[in-house]
């Protein structure tokens, strides 16, 4: 099989699928030209806790599964905790991705960071650009050598 059972489960039954009318922050990453776009909606309360997450994704099975897994991993967490989500953690939680699909997990990480950035921008909260940059592993994800 191309994909693990976990990936297929999240692809077939995506968690937190949908749009959000009153989102605190929205992140859209990817490029239709490359075949993947993820749109992530966050609902964040006064304590900085992510109380709800929704997503829409245009992309392959692993793109949909990666976004679904990422939403599950950040729901109920604080914004700070969400920013620590790495693509590697998403890949591990999915029991692995094929090497040419690792960029999907990178996009999922970037989608979370883009949504948080939007939340910061909307609320005039200052932030360090570095915390919103993709994790180190992400930079190499397009490399064929792969993570796993």
């Amino acid at each position: 099989m191309l994909y693990s059972e976990k990936v297929m489960d999240h692809f077939r039954n995506p968690r937190n699928l949908g749009k959000m009318e009153d989102a605190s922050g929205i992140g859209e990453v990817g490029n239709a030209k490359c075949g993947d776009i993820m749109k992530l909606y966050l609902k964040i309360d006064d304590q900085g806790v992510i109380t709800d997450v929704k997503f829409n994704t245009f992309g392959c099975g692993s793109a949909i599964a990666s976004t679904s897994m990422a939403t599950e991993m950040i729901k109920g967490k604080t914004v700070q905790e969400a920013l620590e989500l790495s693509n590697k953690a998403v890949v591990e939680a999915l029991d692995g991705l094929p090497s040419h699909k690792l960029h999907c997990s990178v996009l999922a990480e970037e989608a979370v960071k883009a949504a948080v950035k939007d939340f910061y921008d909307r609320n005039g909260i200052p932030y360090d650009e570095k915390t919103l940059a993709a994790s180190d592993m992400a930079e190499h994800a397009h490399d064929e050598s792969g993570l796993l």
Partner: peptide, 29 residues
């Protein structure tokens, strides 16, 4: 508005074997 690999996987779940020219199915970008 949609991507071919997802389409193939979901059609396979419905018992239809097909193929696509999407990047994801070709292994390239």
């Amino acid at each position: 508005g949609i991507e071919g690999e997802s389409l193939l996987l979901l059609l396979d779940d419905k018992g239809i074997a097909a193929s696509s020219g999407s990047a994801c199915t070709s292994g390239s970008l």
